[in-house]
């Protein structure tokens, strides 16, 4: 069963690169590991018969979002000497909140032990079938997403633009 081995390989790569994102000291290295993580997740999408989603994931996340991440790193001015000192209380609070998130995630996934990989229609993720579902069954969420875009645009402009005098 070749797909099984591909899955294990992809799972290993995604978990490893995700861990390296957290562990790496250099923020630019973190971004590079995140790109690796995104590519392996795109591989998972292909295994789950979501081919269009995989392509979009590579285009949008690995292409566009990563540029944004690099910009943010440049904007934050992360030099080793100007690294802000984190107080013990802040670390304590971060440990508690992330620990709670872990509990929630584990609790949610524990209930779905019996979940199996959908093997029904191998063409379900192709662009034609996806479009049919998106524009007929999920019409309202699609239209609402345009309002989400509008809100994001207004928000970005409000935050990033000084008023013209």
């Amino acid at each position: 069963m070749m797909i099984k081995y591909i899955f294990y390989f992809l799972a290993f790569v995604s978990v490893f690169s995700a861990l390296m994102v957290v562990v790496s000291k250099n923020p630019v290295h973190c971004v590079l590991y995140l790109i690796m993580c995104f590519f392996s997740i795109a591989g998972h999408y292909v295994l789950l018969n979501a081919q269009f989603l995989a392509a979009v994931h590579v285009i949008v996340y690995a292409g566009a979002i990563m540029v944004l991440f690099l910009f943010v790193i440049m904007l934050l001015n992360l030099n080793t000497q100007s690294e802000p000192h984190k107080s013990t209380w802040l670390k304590f609070a971060a440990a508690i909140t992330s620990g709670l998130l872990l509990v929630i995630l584990v609790g949610t996934l524990k209930g779905s032990e019996t979940m199996v990989m959908p093997v029904g229609n191998p063409n379900a993720g192709l662009i034609k079938n996806l479009g049919n579902t998106l524009f007929k069954d999920f019409l309202l969420p699609f239209e609402v997403s345009s309002i989400l875009f509008l809100v994001a645009m207004v928000g970005a402009v409000m935050l990033g633009k000084k008023e013209i005098k």
Binding site: A64, I65, F135
Partner: peptide, 20 residues
């Protein structure tokens, strides 16, 4: 950053046009 984030928004918009 502003140009990049606006680009991402319109990029996603164009992706919605593929299945359509």
């Amino acid at each position: 950053f502003l140009v990049a984030i606006l680009f991402v928004l319109f990029d996603v918009e164009v992706i919605f046009m593929y299945p359509w």
